[in-house]
Amino acid sequence: MIGLARDGGAILGLIVIGGTILMAALAPALSPADPVKNSLIDRLAPPMWSAGGSAKHPLGTDTLGRDVASRLLYGARVSLIVGLAAVVVAGVLGVALGLVSGYYRGFTDDALMRLGDVQLAFPVLVLAVAVLAVLGASLANVILVLGVTGWITYARIVRGETLSLRQREFVEAARALGATDRYLLWRHILPNVLPPVTVVATFSVARTIIAEASLSFLGLGIPPPAPSWGAMLDEGRNYITTGWWLALFPGLAILLLVLGINLVGDWLRDQLDPRMERSM
């Protein structure tokens, strides 16, 4: 973990991520109000520093009079849960299939990679919209769709690494000593493919959070009244002339969290995978 102290961006990123996790965990204690309780008398109250705002609702209220700050805090839970869970689903699936593909090659490899080609022919969002239209929108289905569609990225990287690792001397040596395929894959190959997978997974969390927000924005995410940043932006779009804060704050929250994750991802890439070029 060298270089963290010198990488200001990564420190900032870790602080943002840590802060978001803390706020999401402590949402019940930190929230100024109930995130799903309507109060039509308070509807469309501006933030406290604007004319007509009050300290009762620091970031204002939405069209049903619900407290925006509280909804942001609870919405962080949805973003974090979907981002992490979908990446775990995609990662486990992709790493497993990538190992099998690269190690055994042959028909399985061909079939899996062609399947990946077909899947990559669909723009992810279009595919997700179509599948969610059939399955229905729910937290579990969003995780499932974003997770299952993400496997190919991991599978391709792991397959490539495995193809070269299986020829390496330390693997050959272990095989000569009588190690089984399972042992070789689990003890020798898997640990060596994990560094690039970690880097990809970090950036995937960031992309998945944006994808979840996009689906929620289109009304295909977590069903209302549960707060989600994307769904809040959908409402913000409809009231953009009367309630600018509805469109501003949830987007800022997404920007901060995703920026933090990307900064940490850049640092991780430098540490774990020096061959990859820095994108910035």
């Binding site: 927000a213 996009s214 949830p250 997404i254 920007l255 990307n262």
Partner: peptide, 19 residues
């Protein structure tokens, strides 16, 4: 610009431009 634009949903950028 590249760092920030990669980190925001494009539809939010659209909303901000509308605003």
């Amino acid at each position: 610009a590249s760092l920030f634009l990669q980190s925001m949903p494009s539809f939010w950028l659209g909303l901000m431009l509308i605003l």
